[in-house]
Computed example of a mutant assay.
Amino acid sequence: MTGLVDVPSLTGGYTDATLTLAIDHTEHTRRQAAGLQLVVGHGFGGLDHLMALPHEMPVPLNTLDKYQRAYVRRAPAAICSIRDGHVTRHAVRPCRILMATVRYNTTYKLALDSASRFAPMCARQVIVKRLDKNAFHRISRLAEFDFYGIGVLLEHADGGLETVVEPRPWVPKRHTPAAWWFAEQAYGSYLKQTAQTLERTAP
């Protein structure tokens, strides 16, 4: 299951882009059944605490520090549950972010900077309406995009896209609470967009 999701106005400058997401259908269905949307918002540092717990493997509650115990005791059961002195984490990331796409008139440095903000999260590409007419500047600028692994697509008048620079595939170096948080925010946009679509199509 995939969908184009507009990035919400997040802290840290993650704005003005479109994300291509791969929704985790199993986790999405589980959350829908439990009435759970996002796992953020249930206490400061919650994702740090969740990442300290293995998925679906009970952990003795007395092995957690006091902050972790306080979190798991107040978190909804769909996130983690406590039974027989053990806590089990149920929540996982609801989606994978495949691509961040930004749009600019041409390959300005602003386009490069905008796409670069997403480097820790996913692959990146820029869609432009024209390339620099000066051959030296055009080649130099495209080489810079290629160096940073940012794709460049030229949008023609008929709406067709021509790949000028291939985006470099993104390989996560490690899993972090920040990346999980970003995935939750993107998933929240997906849920909002889906709800709006249902409202528009409702009889």
Rank of each mutant, 00 (worst) to 15 (best):
M1I: 13
M1L: 11
T2S: 15
G3E: 12
V7P: 02
P8M: 07
P8D: 02
P8C: 09
S9W: 10
L10Y: 09
L10G: 04
T11R: 14
T11W: 13
G13N: 08
Y14I: 08
T15F: 00
T18Y: 05
T26M: 08
T29M: 11
Q32V: 05
A33Q: 14
L36T: 01
L38S: 11
V40D: 02
G43T: 05
F44S: 13
G46P: 02
H49Y: 14
L50R: 01
L50Y: 12
P54G: 08
H55P: 03
H55N: 06
E56C: 07
M57T: 15
L61E: 09
N62Y: 09
T63Y: 08
T63V: 15
D65F: 08
K66I: 13
K66S: 15
Y67G: 11
Q68E: 14
A70K: 12
Y71Q: 03
R73T: 15
R73C: 12
R73I: 11
A75C: 04
A77G: 03
A78D: 12
I79C: 05
I79P: 01
C80L: 05
I82R: 00
R83P: 00
D84M: 06
G85F: 08
H86V: 06
R89I: 12
H90K: 07
A91T: 07
A91K: 00
C95E: 05
C95P: 07
R96D: 15
R96L: 10
L98H: 07
T101G: 00
V102I: 10
T107N: 03
L110I: 01
L110K: 02
A111N: 06
L112W: 13
S114V: 00
S116L: 14
R117T: 11
F118R: 00
A119P: 03
M121P: 00
C122N: 01
A123S: 11
V126A: 00
I127A: 09
V128P: 01
V128Q: 01
V128Y: 03
V128I: 12
L131P: 02
L131I: 04
D132V: 11
F136R: 14
F136A: 14
R138D: 13
L142F: 00
E144P: 03
D146G: 08
Y148N: 07
G149D: 02
G149T: 02
G149I: 01
I150Y: 00
G151W: 08
G151Y: 03
L153H: 14
L154P: 03
E155N: 10
A157C: 00
T163D: 05
T163C: 09
V164L: 10
V165S: 03
P167H: 06
P167I: 01
P169W: 10
P169C: 06
P169H: 12
W170D: 07
V171Q: 15
P172Q: 09
H175L: 15
T176N: 03
W180E: 08
W181G: 15
W181Q: 11
F182L: 14
A183C: 11
A186T: 07
Y187I: 06
Y187E: 10
Y187C: 03
Y190Q: 09
Q193P: 02
A195Q: 15
Q196K: 10
T201H: 13
A202N: 14
P203N: 11
